[in-house]
């Protein structure tokens, strides 16, 4: 068993599982952004022809799963596990979606690290020999998340310039022990970091040290350098968090990235879309990874990617009670 572990926190898969297929559904604002041509589907509005935003989000996730099954000619009966995560209380979107499929369900809450954590667990299940096909899915919705974590959708207020915009959409991917596609070669799961930051609008500031911790841990465990990867992409630090991470890496660890460090939160929207520091939400990193980056990996335009998904693990109650925001980052290496 132990021969798959590298260093303290990294798992190196002996038969790296394949990401056989992905499906991405983007919300309306995301569908106007720079990645619009890379998404499989774009919802024309936030309601997605449903009666509530919550139903819309669940329907998006359900459609994404169905499309991945259809694209790969799989029936739900062929899938061993459905691993999903979202932002809403008790991960009800994932559970609702899971109720539509006769697949054993593993639901997880890990805030916006969803893609990395679900994919890590899927890869561990497969490489461990416990499953051969796993569907991973995640979603977030601006209107459901804003309501839960902040204010009603139509409530008028000004956001600070370092705030981020919760992305709308859903993605699903099929991870399997055979097939074609880029492979998940290793994963580094992170520890929870406390910075004492309490401002729920400053997630970049709260999460940057967690991202650095996981990145450095990954390099130490695998004896790799930043230039091993064509792309090291953090989940949703936003512009402010991204700058902070670069500064911390330089000043604290003397770590320089050879122009290959990016952030999904900075790639999802154009500057003029009024999203301040960038995107956030479970689906932020998923929409970027499973659309443009996945296609580039398949084509061979890039061959080694490290996704470092970041998550702010606060709850609305903990924030109102003045507690600081626990932060985490999980990394997965995807190579072709």
């Amino acid at each position: 068993m132990k021969d798959k572990r590298r260093g303290r926190h990294t798992v190196q898969f002996s038969s790296p599982p394949y990401i056989v297929s992905t499906y991405t559904i983007a919300g309306p604002l995301e569908g106007q952004g720079p990645l619009r041509d890379h998404f499989d589907a774009i919802s024309k509005d936030g309601m997605y022809e449903q009666k509530s935003f919550e139903k819309a989000e669940a329907k998006m996730m359900e459609d994404a799963v169905n499309e991945v099954l259809r694209k790969t000619a799989n029936l739900p009966e062929y899938i061993d596990y459905f691993v999903a995560s979202d932002l809403l209380d008790q991960i009800v979107i994932s559970s609702t979606t899971a109720s539509r499929f006769p697949i054993p369900f593993i639901g997880m809450y890990s805030a916006c690290t969803a893609t990395a954590l679900c994919s890590s667990i899927a890869a561990m299940l497969i490489d461990g020999g416990y499953a051969s096909k796993v569907v991973v899915a995640t979603s977030s919705h601006n209107s459901t998340a804003e309501r839960q974590f902040r204010y009603p959708v139509e409530y008028g207020m000004q956001r600070p310039p370092y705030s981020q915009w919760t992305a709308t959409g859903a993605t699903a991917a099929l991870v399997a022990d055979s097939g074609e596609g880029p492979r998940i070669t290793s994963c580094t799961l992170g520890c929870v970091i406390e910075t004492g930051i309490k401002d729920p609008y400053d997630m970049g500031g709260a999460m940057a040290p967690a991202a650095l911790d996981t990145i450095v841990q990954h390099f130490e465990d695998t004896s790799r350098d930043p230039d091993y990867y064509d792309l090291i992409i953090t989940g949703d630090l936003g512009e402010f968090g991204h700058e902070l991470l670069k500064e911390l890496a330089q000043s604290q660890m003397n770590l320089k990235f050879p122009n290959n460090l990016s952030d999904c939160g900075m790639l999802l929207y154009n500057k003029d879309q009024g999203v301040d520091s960038g995107a956030s939400g479970c689906v932020c990193s998923a929409l970027v990874l499973f659309s443009k980056i996945y296609k580039e990996l398949c084509k061979g335009a890039i061959s080694k990617v490290l996704l470092v998904a970041t998550g702010a693990l606060h709850s609305p109650t903990s924030c109102h009670q003045g507690e600081s925001i626990p932060s985490i980052a999980h990394a997965i290496a995807i190579e072709r």
């Binding site: 910075t195 650095l212 911790d213 604290q252």
Partner: peptide
Amino acid sequence: PLNTSRVKLTQKQYQ
């Protein structure tokens, strides 16, 4: 101090 050895700052210094 932050509970990571990679950032040698206290919470106040980091904030």
